[in-house]
Design a protein around this nucleic acid. Structure first.
Lengths: 158, 158
DNA sequence: ATTTAATTGACAACATGTTGTCGCAATACT
DNA sequence: AGTATTGCGACAACATGTTGTCAATTAAAT
């Protein structure tokens, strides 16, 4: 039975699929640009986008996290985060503190030096983010965030 | 003069800025995931996400493009694209053909082998994209694509 | 309790992104 | 026309992402 409704669903799926493909390309593009922006913003503190994200993931959560936990939050491999954490520990930005629940997986903690930098960056990032979102309505941003998050969640469940 | 309207604009800017920051993190996450998805999809053809994108940028445009042109389309550095193109040329996927308008910058062209792979991938990608966009309305996807593109354009103009 | 499976850190190999430099080619300016 | 700037290919150095392996730890299953 080929009802009108069923045909419509097929058409919509096709149109959505094409738009999704386009969206994918734009996300790759924007991701690279935002990475470069982050590198610029953090340059004066001797940081990069990736290291800034590690600081954020460690500092902005309520409880302390291990390396694999940070990796899962960021949707990245354990090893990528591990290497960054190792370097940043050597640079005096992070401390690895004992985890009573696990002999190997230690907690990642910001040093006072890193915390100072992080909150300076926080202040510096606010006007930048406001500028970037100029011309976009609250509603549009909300929808975009929702859609991106939904896709992300969908892909991570498979 | 602090009108109500002006105060509202400040508040919206602040909320938008915070949402933009959140969006940035989700875009980083999704970009990485989509990259992995692309690697999976292309694996059977001996390709990767990045090389697939080069094929798409070269094949899906009306006119032929040089390496720097492809780079600008993808929002990437000339050198990153150049290296991929060099490897893919060596692998028999691309040909560099003479450009009458420029002695150095040649045109990038797909070989028949690459074209065959590309259109197989095209077919393979359609149901994948339709699956990924399930549960999202046309309107939502449209808004998302528009917002992502607007941000991308804004950043590239600075 | 013992066996089995999943998680973790360390290390390596590799893919792909960036910036930077160099010499040549194309363009713009005066 | 002549000069200055910009664009391009070829390298190189480096940052950061992936996968894969190994041994040790933790968690789960029986």
């Amino acid at each position: 039975m080929l009802s009108i409704k069923f045909l419509w669903e097929i058409m919509t799926a096709k149109e959505n699929g094409e738009m999704f493909t386009q969206l994918t390309l734009e996300i790759f593009k924007l991701s690279g640009m935002l990475n470069n922006e982050g590198d610029e913003l953090t340059k004066e503190f001797g940081l990069t986008s990736s290291r800034w994200k590690i600081l954020g993931a460690s500092e902005m959560s309520e409880s302390r996290h291990t390396v694999p936990q940070i990796a899962r939050t960021m949707g990245q491999s354990r090893q990528a985060v591990q290497r960054l954490v190792d370097v940043m520990t050597k640079d005096g930005l992070l401390n690895l503190v004992d985890n009573p629940n696990h002999k190997r997986a230690k907690y990642v903690e910001l040093t006072p030096k890193a915390r100072k930098i992080f909150y300076k960056l926080f202040d510096k990032q606010i006007p930048w983010a406001e500028h970037c979102s100029e011309g976009l309505s609250h509603k549009e941003l909300e929808t975009t965030l929702k859609v991106i998050t939904m896709i992300s969640n969908k892909l991570s469940k498979e």
